[in-house]
Design a protein around this nucleic acid. Structure first.
Lengths: 170, 170
DNA sequence: CTAGATGCAAATGCTTTGCACGATC
DNA sequence: GATCGTGCAAAGCATTTGCATCTAG
């Protein structure tokens, strides 16, 4: 199943990101990646840079196919295997986080996007809306701990119909 | 990737299910399924009954491969396509719920297991522990509603290390 | 120059489908 | 006996891998 995903960002704090902030964030991510490459004696290739640029510029959860299409529209000489490999590398470098929403796709988002992963998935149009609700985490952790579970990651997924689809379909 | 999944059930209320209750639940599910078949003019075949039995007897989240192995060990004449088709049919009949945990597998659980889907996934042994924490739901719904989102399903997924793996590995 | 990266194509693993045969209603 | 289900094998996907070629350090 192929799903087009559009994300409305809705995070606590700054909804409006100034251009300067975006550029700064982008720069920081790139630095982090190149530091990782150097440490691991890996190479900063043209493709890796292009893929990272596209990923950071998109600035929302995405998957290999979307990035591949964007990249191919500009630079025809990139294979999908390279995009897959790059995304896994980004995750290993800690600049991206890998996640899944139950369709067959492996999704990635910029790791800087907060510790929690709360998604509203519209079952009508496939849109993924991200939200952030810190008041829930502590309860979750408490429950888990009481069961002797050491929590590493928390994901909350709500499925339903988004306001736009609700308006359109009646 | 293949993962063995063991589930410790941990639900509010009755942790201990008496044999009578289990049998009753099983009977109810079967009735519901056969009602569905009749309504839709579908057939109650030997295989569908065998698969449903195995699924209900297991009484925990599972996936096609696990059921297939169980069934093949007893009745060698079942193809995996049939198990896949049966599981989808169970979901359509409302007696099973389909979900995913980000590995490549499509999982199913008995639909009667409550409205929420809260999983503790051990990143070490792959064990899926189910839990139920009703105090969280209202908060979730409130957040979603404030964003104009009509919620149909809620899934919470905690990843970490379970107590057993923690003890074993130090 | 050498370890590592790319791109293609082939391989993989889960799931679905086409089709001839078999079972149910 | 018509319709629907099964089992197998083949097809479909997203993703990974093998390998010859290319390139950054």
């Amino acid at each position: 199943m192929k799903v087009d995903v559009i994300v409305f960002e809705c995070r606590e704090g700054s909804l409006l990101q100034t251009e300067a902030v975006v550029t700064q964030k982008k720069q920081k991510v790139k630095e982090q990646f190149h530091l990782f490459l150097t440490k691991k004696r890996l190479k900063a290739t043209l493709q890796r840079n292009l893929i990272l640029d596209a990923f950071v510029d998109l600035d929302r959860p995405t998957h290999m196919d979307e990035l591949y299409l964007i990249l191919r529209s500009k630079h025809s000489h990139i294979g999908h295997a390279t995009v897959y490999r790059a995304l896994r590398l980004f995750a290993a470098a800690g600049i991206a986080r890998e996640f899944s929403l139950g369709d067959g796709l492996t999704r990635y988002e910029l790791a800087g996007h907060g510790k929690r992963h709360d998604y509203l998935v519209c079952s009508d149009c496939g849109t993924v809306t991200e939200f952030d609700n810190s008041s829930i985490e502590e309860r979750q952790l408490a429950v888990a701990r009481s069961m002797g579970f050491t929590v590493e990651a928390l994901k909350i997924e709500l499925r339903g119909v988004c306001s736009r689809c609700l308006t359109q379909s009646g």
